Amino acid sequence: MSTDYQRAREALGARLLRLRRAAGLTGRELAAALGWAHSKVSKLECGRQTATPADLEAWATATQQPDAIPSLLSDLEGLETNYRSWRRSLPNGHQPVQEEIRRAEQGVALTRAYEPVTIPGLLQTPDYARAVFTANSALHRTPRDTDAAVTERMRRQEVLYQPGARFEFIVGEAALRSLICSRVAMAAQVYRLASTIGMPNVTLGIIPFAAALPMTLRHAFWIKDDTVTTELISARQLLDNAADVALYVRAWEAYRSVAVTGADAHRLLSAIALSLSA
């Protein structure tokens, strides 16, 4: 969890504490009025738990300060802009999230993606994407809108042909060999990556297993102009602090320094595709 996110959550908790005290209620009294465990009140006030919109509305109503609801909800929206749990993002499945990402990608001048174990979404084939969404739906126990999600992800890929946009991808060799789909589908996915080599606005780098690494392979991240997005198992996180972005740019440059590109990348992809087709 980012420091900025935690500080924002603690600030929201401090506001809730002030509302309760202004109403002359103890934590136990408020919990009883709301039908909550006392521990929930404590966790929300201390910033150890993220409130839901319903929590905030109930809190303001119980403390007889309903006028505070709009600003509380605004604080929560700002907090979740930088850290959004998948539990909250996926109640209606993956398609709405893909649509949201597609809209956010419009107008981005430079996209740099680092994916050590997964094919980047903008380069996925339909079969590979279908396997990813199926697995994620099972993990998060979300509605299975797989076909709609795949369609939206393919629509996202239109941004690759947007005038003035530049894309640089770094993919770990593990992503090319991990069989999240059938061998035939995986071979087709590898050939799809090979087809991007030579595109004027796309650079594909691959970190081979045998590369002498400048540091260990860390989690995936995307740098879009001057913001960074990371995807954890539990949440998606947006970083826009200049120091954080600079740190990820340094990590990106370190990984790029050992990635093979151009003809070398094409030879590696061809060898992997042949091994998958054997």
Score class of each variant (00 low, 15 high):
G205V: 06
Y248L: 10
R103D: 11
M186N: 00
A131C: 05
A149E: 03
R15M: 05
E158S: 13
A11W: 03
L238I: 10
V132Q: 09
W59A: 01
A235V: 07
D225L: 02
Y114V: 07
R84M: 09
G164P: 10
A62V: 02
I69W: 00
T146V: 15
V150P: 01
P126M: 08
N92A: 15
R102Y: 06
L247P: 01
A254R: 13
Q49I: 02
S74C: 02
E10V: 15
A174L: 14
Y83H: 15
A271Q: 15
L90D: 03
E115R: 10
S234D: 12
S74Q: 14
I223S: 04
E10C: 08
A242V: 13
A210H: 13
P91G: 05
L123D: 02
R144Q: 15
R183Q: 09
G27M: 10
L232F: 04
G164Q: 09
S275T: 13
R21I: 11
A194I: 06
R18W: 00
L44A: 06
E168C: 09
T196P: 00
A68G: 00
A33N: 03
G27C: 05
R48Y: 11
T203S: 12
T134S: 14
R21N: 11
G24Y: 02
T216P: 06
E80M: 12
Q106A: 10
R141E: 15
A31S: 13
P200E: 11
L44R: 07
A273S: 11
Q237K: 05
I272K: 08
R21M: 11
L232K: 09
L56C: 00
Q162V: 08
N136K: 12
D4N: 11
A188M: 05
V202A: 02
P208C: 04
R256Q: 14
R130P: 02
D127M: 06
G164K: 08
A31F: 02
V132W: 02
E77F: 08
L76S: 09
V184E: 15
A185F: 01
L16Q: 01
A14H: 09
L239H: 10
Y83K: 07
V260P: 05
V171Y: 04
L239R: 12
V202Y: 00
A187S: 14
L90A: 09
Q157E: 02
P91I: 12
M154K: 04
L239W: 05
R250K: 14
R84V: 04
P96H: 05
S270V: 11
A129K: 09
A251F: 12
W36K: 03
T151W: 01
W252Q: 06
D244A: 11
Q95N: 07
N201S: 10
Y248M: 09
G93Q: 12
R141M: 11
P53T: 07
R153G: 08
C46R: 14
Y114F: 15
D147N: 10
H266V: 08
L176R: 12
A33E: 01
T261Q: 03
A54Q: 12
G47I: 09
G47Q: 06
N241W: 04
T227L: 13
M154S: 03
A23H: 01
Y248S: 12
E57D: 07
L76V: 07
Y255A: 08
R48I: 06
S182H: 05
W86V: 11
I197D: 01
A174D: 14
G35R: 08
E105T: 04
E57G: 01
E115Y: 08
R141W: 00
T50G: 08
C181A: 14
A174V: 13
R18K: 15
A188S: 14
S89E: 15
I69S: 00
V258R: 07
